[in-house]
Structure formats: C-alpha cells, structure tokens
Design a binder for these strands. Structure first.
Lengths: 236, 236
DNA sequence: AATAAATATACAACTAGACAAATATTAGCC
DNA sequence: GGCTAATATTTGTCTAGTTGTATATTTATT
C-alpha cells in the first residue's frame, strides 16, 4: 500500500484550514515560502499541493500577488462546476458588474459602420466584467454614439445599468437588431479577467441595439467564458 | 513552451486599438493607472507594454503629461475577416453535405429526454459534414425517433435534405423549440473533419425541432469551426 | 534498474508600494 | 486678462516580495 504523498497531506491540511474558516473567501494564503517553512518541505512540494487545490477550484493564484481562497469554498468538493444559463437578451447586463474602463473617443471604422455615424464621430465606450456569484462570467464592451447621449458615462457609472442610463436619455425601449456569434480562444487578458486558461474557449457575441425608430444606439461585444455559460435562445 | 506574457497581449490590444482608429495620431492614451485598471494588472505591466510600443515608435510618453500616439499613422494589417456567415435557422442545413454515418440504435438518456421517448426506444442517427466552397464548416448529428419515421435514413440519403425527407413522412412544417449555444474546444475527431487544430475553438449548437403539434421530432447537434463561421441571429 | 516523489537552484514575470520629477489644473491676486 | 503660487495628476525610477517555469539532482519505492 503506497504511503500518502507529502503534498497530499499538505493539501488536506490547507483544505481543512479553509473549511474551518481559518482562511476565508478572498483571503490571501501565506506565501509559498512561508508555507514550505511551516511544513518543513521544499517550495515545490507546497506548489504541488496548491496546484491540486487550484484544480478543484478551491484556491486561485495570481503571479506576483499570492494565492487566494476562492470566493465560493462552500461548493467544495463536489458540484463546484456550476452551469449558468443566461438569456442572450441579458448579455452584459447581469446584476453584478465591475467597470473596467470608461472613455469617450473617436469611433473606429467598424463602430462607425455599426452605429451609422458620421466620419470622426465620438463614441462613449463602457467596458466591464459581468459576474455571477462573484465568479466572472463575461467581459463586455458597449459603444454608444456620444453626440446623441451626452454625459451617458456618468449615468452608467451612476446606475450601473445600461437600460436605466438610456432611460435617462429618453430611451424607454430598445431592441436587438442583430446578433452574431462565434467561438474564439481566450486572449491572455481575457483569460486573466475571466480567470480561465489562455486559449480556453470563448463565446463571442456581437450585437446592435436599436431604438423604436430603428436607429442604432448601442454596439455591444460580449465575450463569455465557454466553460461557464450556455446561451439559451427563445425561438418565437 | 511559455505562454504569451500579459504585457505582450496588452501591447497587441493597444496597437490594434490605434490601428483601428480608436486612438488617432496625437491623441492621449488613458493614464497608466486607468489602463492597469482596464486590463486588471499592475501599473508596471502596462508600462512594459507601453515601453515596447514606444520602442516601435508607435507612442511616446511625456512625464507628467501622458502617453501619446505618434503622429505618423502606422498601417496595420487588418485581420482576415470571417469567411462565412450563416443563419442560425439554417444551422446544419447547408446544401453541400457529406454523410459520415447513418444508423438506427437505442436512444441514450439525453436523447430519450429531449425527444420525450419511451425507455429503450430506437432512434435514427444521421451524422455528417457541412461544407461551403469545399471547405468544411461544421459537423452535425441529427437524431430522430425511429418509431415515428420508419425508413427515414434511406430518405435522407436519397434527398440529402432533412426538410425533404421529413416531408415524405408528412411533416410539412417544423419549428425550432429551443437552442443552446456554447463554446468548446475541438476534439481530435472533430478537428480532423473540420481540418482545424485539436483544441481550436468550436461553436456548439444544440437544438430541438418540433412539429405543429409540439411533438419533438429532431434532436440536433452542430459543431461549427469557430474560425470559419459566424452565426447570425434574426431577431423578429 | 526503473520510476515517482521530493529537493535544490536559478531566473523570468508580475505585484506592491514608495518617492521623485515633470506637467497640468486651479485659485488667488494684481 | 495675465501672472504667480499652491495643488493635483501623471510618468519615471527604485527596492522588495511573490508566483511561474525550467533544469538538474537526490531519495524512496517497487
């Protein structure tokens, strides 16, 4: 009978520490160096223990920063793979949101075409992260014509809702005119934000929203983590 | 093989932003602090990306003022556009088709549930390859209840059309009841059929078609090569 | 002998924080 | 308006600490 490996027992000890609340969700664990001193082993042995825990979604390492307890340790050890079903209409509009960037700048060629803008027109850009239960689900970028919606960005920061912000500018209803979907591989930065591996599957949605008169008011991109999201379409 | 460094990816993203006209010559980029927030990294990582771009003469920094796009506009190769656009309603219904497999067998658990079958019921399975301009675009699998459509497989081979084959069995019209979309990585066999690399992004569509009475008649999977296809949704 | 586990060492990549230097903005004043 | 001084912003530099990766070596088990 093979004796239990050292890294296994280290992993078990740390897992128990987390389960007993000694390290809460979001807390930073001691550094690998500190842990290897505590357990009297080499740093790589600790790393292997942490790697196993990361595989189970219990902890999450950030290079240069540290190893952190995952946000939902309660789901450990089984059933941690939550499947999110999200309506396409709610793309980029889930309640939990984190703003990554806000700016007003000149539109590029594609944006000009999508929003039917004059050359060199300005656009508001609103970029952020959608989360569900503290787990990042998607990165989104919304582009609005700046001329039509002056000061929209402050409303967006204020309300944290595209629908509410547009309502302040007289848009009571808007509909999605077109949606394009394709599969991509995660870039390094997307992977960073979504906490997935680089090259992992990404579901990209590109859509245009129009007001009642048919004028485009939003050009939106959403990059979903393929592992965490299934889009369900309601066919009329 | 080392994965791409984060600063490289940031540099690429900003370079593309400039190339596409989001930041024009002479424009001031967002501050390093703002960029580090946008990309979710430390300021130094952004600085390394900007340093690389400055090395290429794309931007230049002025202490206390900001980072500015160089005056001479750099020509940037536009990424090759997606080759094929496909309507989701016609997913897996392209005229050019290659049959990979045809068989009648017992339904598995998921098929039984999707088609609302009795336990141990038989199903027809029709597996193939969709092509456009001699380029494989998607792999599909259609599952039909065998009891309701005896001899359907020969009709399928005959007509090479799901719609025509079903018409021979009295189905004049059918509609899509549900569609689920997600991103996956190509398996080895899928990669072989689609002539893409193993692990390349795949757009998977799972749908159920029903007849006029609401009875499920087809349970279909389609795996699109993410590089070659963009699905377009028509929103009514 | 072969294999896996653990150690040892070195370097790369990224984070963290602090402070200096240059610039931009604002307020007060003439 | 135009000038100056104070304040805030922004980039430049430095030191230190932490995780990621690669290579080689030793030790224990089969």
């Amino acid at each position: 009978m093979p004796r239990t490996a050292i890294w296994t027992s280290i992993s078990n000890t740390l897992t128990r520490d987390i389960a007993e609340g000694r390290y809460g969700p979001g807390d930073k664990l001691p550094t690998e160096a500190a842990l290897s001193a505590r357990f009297g082993v080499n740093r790589h042995t600790v790393r292997r223990a942490l790697a196993a825990m990361a595989q189970d979604g219990l902890v999450h390492a950030r290079r240069g920063a540290g190893v952190f307890v995952a946000q939902k340790p309660t789901e450990y050890p089984i059933g941690r793979r939550v499947r999110f079903h999200q309506n396409l209409a709610a793309a980029g509009r889930s309640p939990a949101k984190e703003v990554l960037m806000c700016e007003t700048r000149a539109a590029d060629a594609r944006e000009t075409e999508a929003l039917v803008l004059a050359p060199a027109a300005q656009v508001h850009v609103y970029e952020g992260l959608s989360l569900a239960d503290d787990m990042p689900v998607a990165v989104f970028r919304s582009v609005f014509p700046a001329e039509r919606f002056p000061g929209l960005l402050t409303d967006l920061m204020d309300t944290k809702s595209v629908t509410a912000a547009l309502k302040r500018h007289g848009i009571n209803d808007y509909t999605r005119a077109s949606t394009r979907l394709t599969a991509k591989q995660a870039t390094a930065t997307q992977a960073l934000h979504l906490r997935i591996a680089e090259g992992a599957p990404i579901l990209r949605s590109v859509g245009i929203n129009i007001d009642e008169t048919g004028t485009p008011i939003e050009y939106g991109h959403t990059w979903f983590a393929g592992d965490r999201v299934t889009l369900t379409l309601q066919d009329s």
